[in-house]
Design a protein around this nucleic acid. Structure first.
Lengths: 353, 353
DNA sequence: CTGTTAGCGCTTTCAG
DNA sequence: CTGAAAGCGCTAACAG
């Protein structure tokens, strides 16, 4: 099909030197080994003219390295939000000349084992184990074969693996403060979780952490949550139902919704009840899902930094790869990535009574 | 770090045979070469006990194959919709024991060249060149090195590359027919493109194809489009503006929005004007973006079959790889993937006058 | 039926 | 300063 690739041997021949010399020059170690200028130039020129490209597979076989990292997730590639995570990882990897293998497990442990196996067979230099939404995962044993980092996930059992996560607690504080700064002190209701730290959807790490932050910031200001509704799942319909129920008995001044989809449902319930955002009720939320800027009024929300999470995971992974010998002692530190506030139109001072 | 991998030589030694024999047995060609049952069993058992896994890199070097395909897109990994495309490709590839390299070009031709180069260096067996939204792309010359298929994209110049695309024309017909079947014959307006085939956003293949289908189905029924507004970009704000302007002068009976984001804007404008969907105005749209089932009333829409597109691309690619020698003569056929209708709540018979 | 031999393309001692 | 030789793990002729 193609006219056979140019190999190192071709370059060496064209330059009239041995493969060794050519290899040395091309891997940039010509200088330190004091190879003559003349030879160096000849090799470089030959490589250039022949358009030589090293065969990475071959290098991989020889060096046991593949300049590739495996990105394994439950189903991250699919969610738009999380797609940015891949993008961040992709770019960070590319900056270092690495490629990414993507794999999805669909939450199936057996599939996960197979996938890790396969990646190992392909000699990946490291692994990123990602979860679509922040939660505690069972770290597969198979993973110990290569350096690895957890992305958007916490280990269920203690492991030496580092983890990269959004700073949800600070995000909770931030959401609460936005309301505080607008002058809200009363009638602040939570939609999605709370009021207690146990009133959260199953497995949701984000829920409890956001809740902690919210309560902390409110508490410091001496403000109490007026009420809270838990949603079994953070989907618009539950946000709608929870808000509608709330409105049957109470007229809130502000809503902290636990994510944008819930906020969307809340908007609908508020609208049905003839309440205006933000004139009657202020709304703040989390995630910065694309709809946050589509719904009207546009939604103020604390963004999940997907892109940064992806980049950070790769950075942490490279630090891990760089580490000579993994001290079994070391316990995986967790890296928190800040969640930035996106100020939009859904917040106003409380209506004067 | 790990205790050195088990190699074929280890298995051979343990089974008391040569590497060749072990290789033959393990690649399943033992039978046809009539290797003795005894030997076969010994090898199999040894491999099993030692947990032997072939080193794919090595096989790759030897056979020039990598059981890997490259998925290069402008920015497909990022868009939630298109994430499903990757998912489909991922699964189809996995079914055949292949992995996927993902790469994004950000529409930068130089980056694209580099990426293709890199994938080529890594001996990918085939390439999928994907676009986030359907359009004509300039096929990079570098791509001829390996079998390739265009996904969600048409070649600008004629090439022998096959292309996989959603069947937009049929989708257009389908959208129009839904309205027709509900009894609509008058007051049907287009939001996003039209009425002429030239009234479309730049580069949008989908726009003209959908338009063709719509006009065809309507034409067959002897129905004329009452009016149309083009949007410079298919975002909610433009859908909102276009619909609001339309409502200044006209009271439509039905809207065909060119995608769900536009429809979302249209909903807002309709709501502002005090018009009910679908009681006063029916709405049909395209894409089946997640919001289509979130907004109320839920939106009837003709879905982009992202997952299927991804799968199909891989299937077509494998057919391509299987083909012995690419006849330069062959012109790339285009495969159209059906776009299914998602019937929801936004359509009703026209109000009786 | 099975083993010997020879590489795939590259890096890396080890001698000049 | 440069080259010869070995070998990463595997497969494929080619002999026996």
């Amino acid at each position: 099909m193609s006219p056979r690739r140019v190999t190192l041997a071709d370059v060496a021949k064209a330059a009239g030197v041995s493969r060794t010399t050519a290899s040395l020059v091309l891997s940039g170690r010509g200088r330190e080994l004091r190879i003559s200028q003349d030879v160096e130039q000849r090799v470089l020129r030959a490589a250039d003219e022949l358009e030589y490209r090293p065969n990475i597979v071959s290098v991989g076989l020889r060096t046991g390295t593949s300049r590739t990292i495996g990105f394994v997730s439950d189903t991250v590639a699919t969610s738009r939000l999380a797609g940015d995570m891949i993008k961040g990882a992709l770019e960070a990897a590319r900056d270092r000349g690495f490629m990414l293998f993507i794999g999805e497990t669909e939450g199936d442990a057996e599939l996960e084992r197979l996938l890790l196996q396969t990646m190992h067979d392909r000699q990946v230099d490291g692994l990123i184990l990602a979860s679509m939404f922040t939660r505690a995962i069972k770290v597969p044993k198979a993973i110990t074969a290569a350096p690895a980092v957890l992305l958007n996930a916490l280990p269920k059992q203690p492991t030496p693996l580092p983890a990269v996560l959004p700073d949800e607690v600070e995000a909770g504080r931030r959401a609460a403060r936005v309301l505080l700064e607008a002058g809200h002190r009363d009638g602040i209701h939570l939609i999605g979780a709370g009021p207690g730290l146990r009133d959260v959807p199953p497995e949701s790490v984000a829920a409890v952490e956001r809740l902690v932050g919210i309560r902390e910031a409110l508490g410091e200001a001496g403000v109490k949550v007026a009420g809270a509704r838990t949603c079994p799942d953070w989907q618009p319909e539950y946000g709608f139902a929870a808000t509608r129920d709330l409105l049957h008995t109470i007229r809130p001044r502000a809503l902290i919704c636990f994510n944008d989809r819930i906020a969307m449902g809340a908007y609908q319930a508020l609208d049905d009840a003839g309440l205006k955002v933000p004139g009657d009720v202020s709304v703040v939320s989390f995630d910065d899902h694309p709809i946050a800027s589509w719904i009207r009024p546009t939604l103020t929300t604390v963004a999940l930094p997907h892109y940064e999470l992806g980049r950070t995971a790769v950075d942490v992974l490279f630090a891990e790869i760089g580490r000579e010998h993994a001290d079994a002692e070391r316990v995986g530190e967790v890296h928190r990535v800040p969640m930035p506030l996106r100020s939009r139109e859904s917040i106003a001072p409380p209506p004067a009574d």
